[in-house]
Design a protein around this nucleic acid. Structure first.
Lengths: 156, 156
DNA sequence: ATCAATGCAAAGGTTTTGCAAAAAT
DNA sequence: ATTTTTGCAAAACCTTTGCATTGAT
């Protein structure tokens, strides 16, 4: 069970296993494919634990990021968002995001096309890559369809 | 001259050409390779135009981003940063960033390795990519050298 | 019993907004 | 003359922090 592993990881680092920490992780884990803000996590967590505080959410996501249990992502809308990290042995195979600038929808997709790039970076500059993030912006199929009839100028 | 083109673009969109807008662009343009925050732009601009306000900087960078004259980037340090966009005919050839998590240095590099990925995204999901951003994190050569002697454990 | 974690409220820091004055068309 | 833009200050906003209390080991 995933939760048991999490408890172990906490103990290994001398951190305490609390209901709040379990709940925050569970909340994020139970919303796969979403990218929750601290506030959203807070609202969801409150449903199950009304006395939880927003500050605890902020402190907990920091811990979870540090433990590599969740990933921090940002779509430049003023919010930091969190999603379950794929804590594989090789943690560098994150998925990436395509953000529709019309409707804000976020498509996630896998891709390991950066290995060549990362190798080149090491060869030329001695930079060792430990993590990467690819963010694409554009227009999703639905928005293209919907706006297509009207005026393509809007797509610049 | 680049500035003339900028004036044209403003007029085309019904926006007014002001000293403040020219100055903000000039300030960013005269710091190539840097990634200035609004506050930094403000301090630099004040040297030449002391009565300029911070709110003007914020409003101006919004305009510049919308006009595709500058790009918005974030290195997750709590600041939104701005750099000159390469407003080429094909504006999709942005450069990318490798951020050292030890010293915070940012290396910029070019790379067009995403074309295959973007084509695949269109073929499978109908998503049209208009822009992309690649952010790598890791350790730069100097930090590897400096820490290398001490303790490799710190690199996880 | 000890030490970390929580909740609350207050503070922090960046970015936005309201509005009258100034500037551009 | 009209309409946008500016500057200032205040507000809004997300996030962090201080501190006494609670909870975990």
């Amino acid at each position: 069970m995933e939760q048991e592993r999490f408890k172990e990881v906490l103990r290994e680092r001398g951190l305490k296993v609390t209901n709040q920490r379990l709940l925050v992780l569970e909340t994020i884990a139970s919303h796969p494919g979403e990218h929750l803000t601290a506030e959203e996590i807070y609202e969801l967590a409150k449903e199950q634990y009304p006395e939880i505080g927003l500050a605890t959410i902020y402190r907990t996501v920091q811990v979870l990021v540090e433990l590599n249990v969740i990933d921090k992502v940002s779509f430049d809308d003023g919010f930091v968002r969190y999603e379950l990290g794929n804590a594989k042995a090789d943690s560098r195979h994150h998925h990436h995001h395509a953000i529709c600038q019309e409707c804000g929808r976020v498509l996630a997709f896998e891709g390991d096309l950066l290995e060549t790039l990362e190798q080149a970076l090491y060869d030329t500059m001695g930079f060792v890559v430990t993590d990467h993030e690819v963010k694409l912006t554009g227009y999703c199929r639905d928005c293209i369809k919907r706006k297509g009839q009207e005026n393509m100028e809007e797509f610049n």
